[in-house]
Amino acid sequence: MKIGLVQSSPHLGDVQKNLKSHFAYIEKAKKENVQLIIFPELSLTGYTLQDLVEEVALCPDSDPTFKKIKKASEEISIVFGFVEKKDNGLFYNSSAYLSDGEIKNIHRKVFPPTYGMFEEMKFFAQGKNFHTFSTPFGKTGMMICYDFLQLGACYLLFAGGSDTIIVLSAAPGRGYSEEDKFESSNMWESMGASLSRFSTSFVVYCNRVGFEDGKVFAGGSFIYGPAGNLMAKARYVEEEFLIHDINLDEIAEVRKKRLYKRDDKPEIILEALKRIISSYED
């Protein structure tokens, strides 16, 4: 089954321009028989939105832009990032999985980073859940950027029975390294290797490129297989459309040898968490 990762550079605050570029990639993907195309975090809007958040926000159920993408998903499954406006008047950094002309799932970023150079919680509400849902790629779960660096979030998708984990990202590069990449790229890669191996799932990480206010989005999108093996990798910093054919049988194959799923004990973890929470001192 072919997956396409769009490592692109969205235009900041210009939904229509981005929509056009989404459709161009979707057409390309269809020609290559890609079954699932994945765009990065906030692919419809760009990242450094600040007060633009409310101007670019969409309501998935009623918005005409959303309808157009839904229609396109009759032929190909589409994952993309957008600003969601909910009926409660709040705005979320969200991702949608569209397939068969329908919304299969929406994930709202649970951990919007707000420290140092990041200020997402000034502008976004927080999602409250991690779901897995059925797709032709097995049970699938989505995370957005910093979600992926949270052990708890990763565990929840694993406990939810994940076969494929999709991560949409807008990660700026940070830190010198003597290698030909940002030091911060190592962080995503090591989580990709670990989570795929210990959840025996495919981990598909789609990061963006381009520049916003001096931030250099690092690219380096990747796919890790369920044995923790790197299967495909995009270049750093440069735009790329990475297409890779994955074999879902590998999941069952790996799980014969690695029984992490069978041996997981969510009930014990839940009880232990309750005890930890009840004994907080601050």
Binding site: S9, G173, Y176, S177, E178, E179, D180, K181, G210, F211, G214, V216, Y236, V237, E238
Partner: peptide, 20 residues
């Protein structure tokens, strides 16, 4: 503190072009 010159050149030349 040492930088990878090839990588830094790639980032900075892309930055100049992109911003302009």
């Amino acid at each position: 503190m040492k930088i990878n010159e090839i990588f830094v050149e790639k980032v900075l030349t892309a930055f100049i072009k992109n911003e302009l």
